[in-house]
Write a protein that binds this DNA or RNA. Structure first.
Lengths: 105, 105
DNA sequence: TTGACATGCAACCATTTGGTTGCATATCAT
DNA sequence: ATGATATGCAACCAAATGGTTGCATGTCAA
């Protein structure tokens, strides 16, 4: 999960994921159009995303197709974020209860 | 939101957040006990968390108390992860529909 | 008031990161 | 076959990152 967190830390990589979310299965050169850097730099970013299992690769002839894998993001949500979300809602609930006690008390 | 993503990329910082999740309002020296590094290094990590608005600090005398702020994590969930979660559930739903068509067809 | 405690600040260091350039290789289309 | 297209690989570079050490400052307690 650490690799996924690290991969998500860079805005260029998040943009790549967003791009795949809009249109899955894009080639490297297609993905390059959205980022202002060399193809080789984009390759490195996609390599990190692939290492973090966030994108899967399929070769079609000389083209490399990139597919989004939502599982690691789900795991981050399930095993990490959800805990804080519950905490947050609990805090809201506690606040609400406190306000009601002020009103009725 | 970029600062929050970057802050979450480091496992020591995530551990600090987990620690505050368990027990909010801890001092710097208390938080130091959970990490195998110098106090100054922990200070830097907490500084990044603070800059990302993930923790808020309150001074009590010479002690610095650290409180968890769940809002940025919620924003990451709401404005980023939720989109992929829906995508994932849609994929599941599509799969289910496909299977039913195979059964009934 | 003095010593211990909690923290801050700054310089320094090695490694990682995010990018580049240059060249090589494989596939497609004419 | 040949040229254009799609990608890979490696060396290099500057800046950011994650840690250290050393010392200064402010607050509590005896």
């Amino acid at each position: 999960m650490d690799a996924a967190f690290k991969a998500l830390a860079d805005s260029s990589r998040r943009r790549l994921l967003d791009q795949l979310h809009k249109s899955d299965g894009q080639t490297l050169t297609e993905l390059c159009e959205y980022l202002d850097m060399t193809r080789q730099a984009v390759t490195k970013h996609l390599g990190l995303l692939e290492a973090a299992n966030l994108v899967a690769i399929v070769w079609r002839g000389r083209e490399k197709l990139h597919y989004l894998n939502p599982v690691p993001i789900h795991e981050i949500y399930e095993r990490w974020i959800d805990k804080y979300e519950r905490h947050r809602l609990q805090a809201l609930s506690d606040l609400k209860k406190g306000l009601e006690e002020i009103k009725t008390g």
